[in-house]
Simulated assay, not measured.
Amino acid sequence: MIDPRIKLRHLTCFLEVARLKSVVNAAEVLNISQPAASRTIQELEQVLGGSLFDRSKRNLFLTPFGEVFYRYAATSMAALRQGIDLARGTHEAAIVRVGALPTVSARILPSAVQAFTATGSGVHTRVVTGPNDYLLTLLRTGDVDFVIGRMAEPDVMLGLSFEHLYSERVVFVVRPGHALLSERSFDLSMVENYQTLVPPPGSVIRRLVERMLVANGVTELRDEVETVSNAFGRAYVRQTDAIWIISEGVVAEDIADKHLMLLPVDSSETTGPVGLTTRTDMVSTLAAESLKQAVRDAAASLR
Rank of each mutant, 00 (worst) to 15 (best):
I2N: 09
I2H: 08
D3A: 04
R5G: 12
T12N: 13
C13D: 14
F14S: 04
L15N: 00
V17M: 00
V17F: 00
R19W: 03
L20S: 12
V23D: 07
V24G: 11
A27D: 02
E28D: 05
V29F: 00
S33C: 02
S33Q: 09
A36H: 03
A37N: 07
A37R: 05
T40I: 02
T40F: 01
T40P: 02
I41W: 03
Q42W: 11
Q46F: 08
Q46H: 11
F53L: 07
R55H: 11
S56H: 09
K57Q: 11
R58W: 09
L60Q: 02
F61H: 14
L62F: 12
P64R: 13
G66P: 11
E67R: 15
V68C: 15
Y70S: 01
A74D: 01
S76M: 13
M77Y: 08
A78P: 00
A78E: 00
A79E: 10
A79V: 06
Q82I: 10
Q82E: 14
A87G: 10
I95R: 09
I95L: 08
V96R: 08
P102M: 04
T103A: 14
V104A: 06
A106N: 10
I108H: 04
P110W: 04
V113K: 10
A115K: 12
A115D: 08
T125E: 09
R126V: 06
P131D: 12
P131F: 11
N132K: 13
N132G: 14
D133H: 15
D133E: 15
L136R: 13
D143G: 15
V144A: 01
F146Q: 02
A152P: 12
M157C: 13
G159C: 07
G159N: 10
S161V: 08
H164I: 00
L165R: 04
E168M: 03
E168I: 04
F172G: 06
V174E: 04
R175L: 08
R175M: 04
A179N: 14
L181M: 08
E183S: 08
M190E: 13
V191C: 11
T196V: 15
P199G: 03
P200D: 07
S203H: 05
S203F: 02
V204L: 01
V204M: 00
R207D: 12
R207T: 10
E210R: 03
R211K: 13
A215I: 04
V218N: 05
L221T: 03
V225G: 01
V225L: 07
E226S: 07
S229P: 05
G233R: 01
V237I: 07
Q239G: 06
I246H: 08
E248Y: 04
G249T: 05
V250G: 08
E253M: 14
I255K: 05
A256V: 15
P264E: 00
S267H: 02
S268N: 09
P273C: 09
P273Y: 05
T278D: 05
T280D: 14
T280K: 15
T280H: 14
V283W: 11
T285R: 06
A287R: 11
A288C: 08
L291M: 05
A294C: 14
V295D: 06
A298L: 06
A298V: 09
A298D: 05
A299L: 02
A300H: 13
S301D: 15
S301V: 14
